[in-house]
Amino acid sequence: MTETLAFGTAETVLGRLLVAETETGVVSLAFRDTPAARARTAKATGLPVVDAPARTAPALSALRDYFAGHLKDFDVPIDWRLTSDAQRQVLTTLYESVPYGKVVTYGELGDRSGTGVHAQVIGQIMGSNPIPLIVPCHRVVASNGLGGYSGGSGVEVKRWLLTLEGSVPATLDWDITRAP
């Protein structure tokens, strides 16, 4: 049986998210559904694209529930094919050990993952995470603040996500229905 790639979208407060899924699991998530994002993912996986809305439905439903404040843990299968062995080790450690509402520093994640890589390298791995939100790179912070974020429109999206999860106190004007 030939493996294939299916795309689906979820409307969220942060915009229309694009999820790509193989028979194995979610392989990528992009903050914007664009033809270029679809083409990059198809090229990176090397898989033919099919129309299979039932395949992406569980992940899309989970994302909608997350943004509504109802979902604490993503329980969707992951396809790690777009990661190197080192990335996979760090991202798997993050996915399995940093729950909703918690944060970890770049250095702590490096230690937990057993890779022995420097915090700066952990930051680069977070920046290249092909499955943000589901593999929660927004929960990895600097030892002296939020650190960076390459998802969405940047660090304000990270702050918004951490506020949603209760890791960062909400400001008086914070609103779950309004994007940063």
Results as ranks from 00 to 15, higher is better:
V26M: 15
R159V: 01
D51N: 11
A37L: 00
M1T: 11
P58M: 11
R88V: 02
R88S: 10
I122S: 09
S28L: 04
V49I: 06
R32M: 12
Y100T: 03
V50E: 11
H70L: 14
R32Y: 07
R139V: 01
S97C: 00
R32C: 11
T24D: 11
A86P: 00
L133F: 05
A119K: 09
P77H: 06
L14H: 10
P132D: 02
Y100C: 10
F67T: 07
L71K: 11
V168M: 08
D51C: 05
R159S: 07
Y100P: 00
P35Q: 13
G147P: 01
P58Y: 12
L60C: 15
P130S: 02
Q120F: 08
K43T: 15
E165M: 06
R81Y: 15
G110Q: 08
Y149A: 05
T45I: 09
L133T: 13
L91K: 05
Y149N: 14
P132T: 02
H118C: 01
A39F: 08
V103E: 05
G148V: 01
S167L: 15
S97H: 11
R40S: 11
S113N: 04
A39G: 07
R159H: 07
P130V: 03
H118K: 13
S167E: 10
T24E: 14
L91Y: 08
A62N: 10
V50R: 11
L94K: 02
E108R: 04
A86G: 07
R64F: 06
F67I: 06
A20G: 12
Q87M: 12
G154N: 01
A39L: 13
I131D: 06
S128W: 05
Y106T: 04
L109E: 03
Q124S: 07
V117L: 13
S28T: 12
G15S: 11
Y149H: 11
D33V: 09
L14F: 12
I134T: 00
A54P: 01
T177F: 13
S28A: 15
S128A: 07
L18Y: 13
S97I: 00
L60F: 08
K43E: 15
R178C: 04
T163A: 10
P58F: 12
V104L: 06
F7H: 12
Q124F: 07
Q89I: 14
G46Y: 10
P58C: 04
R112D: 04
L5P: 08
G114H: 06
L71C: 09
G114W: 00
R88N: 10
Y95W: 04
A37H: 08
E96S: 00
L60S: 10
G123R: 14
R40P: 03
E21D: 09
G25I: 01
G151F: 04
P35W: 08
P77E: 12
S167C: 14
S84N: 02
L17Q: 07
L60D: 12
T22V: 05
G8P: 12
T115Y: 00
Q124A: 11
R178Q: 14
P77N: 02
W160T: 02
L133M: 05
A36T: 12
N129T: 01
I122H: 01
A57T: 13
T163L: 09
E96A: 12
E23S: 15
R88T: 10
D51H: 14
V104C: 06
A20M: 11
S143F: 00
A68L: 15
V76N: 11
W80H: 01
V103Y: 01
V26N: 13
G46N: 14
S150H: 08
A52H: 15
G114V: 08
G127C: 06
A42V: 02
